[in-house]
Design a protein around this nucleic acid. Structure first.
Length: 275
DNA sequence: TTGCGCACGAGTCTCACACG
DNA sequence: CGTGTGAGACTCGTGCGCAA
């Protein structure tokens, strides 16, 4: 069943990427391979059917349009489904850029699989790879070209996905920051209010701030308020009590404590230092 | 995969009081 | 008027499981 090319490549010393092996196979029911290790990266792309891929302590159930990557020197195991065994193609490669390209495509040791945005296109790339058998000297060049095509496809798909996710998150963050800008002087402003305004869960809002600003929503609010208070003390010569009230603190004692913690000196010292 | 709900410990806030 | 401190109340951070 398996059709694997003996590449018999005259090495051109292309150090960024070098092809080791490629092939395709319609697997039989429950056909398996491993546990075993390879000394190069090995991509499998599933044209039809399904199966499982196991590596480290993780198990991935994969089907048509998906693929998995075996990392060099990692023990892995894979097995075709009993009822609907997979048909897949593979290509093995190494090179200085190999891991970079995989990373760009969102594929890592911890996340060693991918989904094609356009399965038809990826299938065609692998079909062409399998038709390079009759080439002699140019075999590796053509395979390399096709491998680059493959990476271009999945990297682009991954970037589009990341952009969609990031845009939405940044939109939430912008709205939250705006809300704080408009409401920071309200003593009763709570992080839960911001979450509720955005129709988001409080936990999720916290995750967004942590991911995009490396701050918790509360830390952001506090720092925002203290910077505003510092401006008021500096530019308007306000009393500490008034500055506190202006940025949402009814209790000047709490305000002083937090101000000192954030700005490094008490409000009164800050005010005198600025004059 | 995204987003929610929940629970619990940690951290923050509020209040009271003393003092400079 | 502002600061420091301690106790109790309250809110938040975070992890986990779950559903859509």
């Amino acid at each position: 069943m398996a059709r694997e090319q003996d590449l018999n490549i005259d090495r051109l010393h292309l150090t960024d990427m070098e092809i080791h092996i490629c092939g395709s196979q319609q697997c039989g029911r429950s056909h398996s391979y491993g546990p075993a290790v390879r000394d190069y990266f090995l991509i499998h792309y599933i044209h039809r059917g399904k199966g499982i891929f196991k590596v480290d302590n993780s198990k991935f159930e994969l089907n048509r349009g998906q693929g998995f990557v075996i990392w060099p020197h990692l023990i892995s195991y894979y097995q075709a489904d009993q009822d609907n065994p997979w048909q897949y193609s593979w290509i093995g490669f190494t090179g200085l850029k190999a891991e970079d390209y995989l990373k760009e495509a969102g594929i890592s040791r911890e996340n060693p699989y991918f989904r094609a945005q356009n399965p038809e296109k990826i299938s065609n790339i692998f079909s062409e790879m399998n038709q390079t058998g009759n080439l002699k000297k140019s075999k590796e060049i053509k395979l390399l070209g096709l491998l680059y095509f493959f990476f271009a496809e999945i990297i682009e798909a991954n970037k589009q996905k990341l952009n969609r996710d990031e845009n939405l998150k940044e939109e939430y963050l912008k709205k939250a920051v705006n809300y704080i800008d408009r409401n920071y002087s309200r003593p009763d402003l709570k992080i839960a209010d911001i979450a509720s305004y955005l129709n988001l869960n409080r936990s999720y809002l916290w995750q967004l701030f942590d991911e995009l600003l490396d701050l918790s929503p509360q830390q952001y609010l506090i720092e925002f308020r203290m910077e505003k208070a510092a401006l008021l003390l500096e530019n308007y010569n306000l009393k500490v009590k008034s500055a506190a009230l202006s940025v949402g603190y009814e209790d000047p004692f709490s305000f002083s404590k937090i101000f000192k913690k954030v700005m490094g000196k008490s409000p009164s010292l800050y005010k005198n230092g600025q004059i």
